[in-house]
């Protein structure tokens, strides 16, 4: 068995994934706004107001019950196009495979509040909830 609290057991039941996500949120001392109270996220800056106007459905109780055992992998696959399959980049774009989950989450949360400018990642950082980031970061940390 793994003892690192960052690791989620891939085969755990859907509800346990959510429980695990909350535990991770607490462990990382992150504000679980995306997971618990999406409507109470901090006041967005002008540059991110559009991105936060619609909060993804993943955070609703109904959707949590529908999270399947492959939710983490499928979410993370959104990063593969630019960062390589399973985060194993073949170009100069950052490799995500093997990064620690906390590093990925810290970076994404920082980029979320920085002006977008010409950095596409700052746009992407605004597109995922905290709960989704946890699942994505967990996946890459295990590659």
């Amino acid at each position: 068995m793994r003892h690192d609290p960052i690791h989620l057991n891939k085969t755990m039941a859907a509800s346990l994934v959510v429980v695990g996500a909350f535990a991770l949120l607490a462990g990382l001392r992150l504000s679980p706004v995306g997971a618990i109270a999406p409507s109470k996220r901090g006041t967005p800056s002008a540059s991110e107001s559009t991105a936060t106007a619609y909060m993804p459905a993943v955070t609703t109780a109904l959707q949590r019950t529908l999270q399947s055992s492959t939710a983490s992998r499928l979410l993370a696959s959104n990063c593969f196009q630019c960062h390589g399959t399973d985060g194993k980049s073949s170009s100069g774009i950052d490799r995500l495979a093997g990064m620690s989950a906390s590093e990925i989450i810290d970076e994404m949360q920082s980029m979320r509040v920085e002006p977008i400018g010409n950095d596409i990642m700052k746009a992407h950082a605004r597109g995922y909830t905290d709960a989704e980031l946890l699942l994505i970061a967990d996946y890459f940390s295990r590659q």
């Binding site: 993943v58 999270q67 399947s68 597109g127």
Partner: peptide, 17 residues
Amino acid sequence: HMMAGEPVNGAPVTNSA
């Protein structure tokens, strides 16, 4: 999931870039 008789992911996310 469908071939395994399981429910599918209910909250898919996609991105265009």
